[in-house]
Every structure is written in structure tokens, then in C-alpha cells.
Amino acid sequence: MFVVLLTYTAPLDAVDRHVPAHRQFLERQYAAGVFLLSGRKEPRDGGVILATAASRAQLDAVLAQDPFMLHGIADYQVLEFHPTMGAPAVNGWLEG
């Protein structure tokens, strides 16, 4: 599982111009089962995505399609972790 931290590298007016395309990208990844949760950070200087991908390489390929990345709107930090405990609602995401 992965946590993706986005940090905006452009002013918010530039970010806002690309939000509709970014949301369409997110919707495609939810439909494909790659993304589990996403949302903006507070203060609004970026966002967070919780992803489940087969590999870091697969996730990197997916993120390369994000309009924010394509237009240089955000930097991405990817943290991989292996969940071993969780609330009952997310137990299906746990690894051994």
C-alpha cells in the first residue's frame, strides 16, 4: 500500500485550472481499484492519496498520467507501507 503526498509547486489559480482534469484522473483510478482515498491537505498546499498498486513501478506509471504531474503543478512523495492492523472496515487491506 502507498501514501502519496502531493505538494503544489504552482499558485492556487494554476492548480484550480487543472482540478477538473485531476478529478477525472482520480475517478479513473478509483474505478481501476488503484486509489482508495484522496483529498486535499489543510492548509491547501497539496493533497494526499491512499493507493493500492501491485508495485511502486505500477503506481509511478499511474501517477505519470496525473494532469498535476503532466503540467508541473505538484511534486509527489510516495511512501510505501505494509498495513498489519486496522479498523474492521479496512481489514481487507491488511497484509499478513
Rank of each mutant, 00 (worst) to 15 (best):
V3N: 03
L5V: 14
L6T: 01
L6C: 02
T7D: 12
T9A: 09
A10G: 04
P11S: 12
D13Y: 11
D13C: 09
D13F: 10
D13Q: 12
A14G: 05
V15N: 10
R17W: 10
R17C: 06
H18I: 11
H18R: 15
V19C: 04
V19E: 08
P20N: 07
P20M: 09
H22F: 03
H22P: 08
R23H: 09
R23C: 04
Q24R: 14
Q24Y: 01
L26F: 11
L26I: 14
E27I: 02
E27D: 15
Q29W: 03
Y30H: 13
A31D: 14
A32C: 11
G33I: 01
S38V: 03
G39D: 04
G39E: 05
R40L: 05
K41G: 03
K41D: 00
K41N: 09
R44Y: 11
G46W: 03
G46H: 04
I49K: 01
I49N: 00
A51T: 02
A51Y: 02
T52M: 11
A53C: 11
A53G: 12
A54T: 15
A54Q: 14
S55E: 12
A57C: 12
A57E: 15
Q58Y: 10
D60R: 10
L63K: 01
A64N: 08
D66M: 05
M69G: 06
L70W: 00
I73D: 01
Y76T: 11
H82R: 14
A89K: 07
A89L: 12
G96E: 13
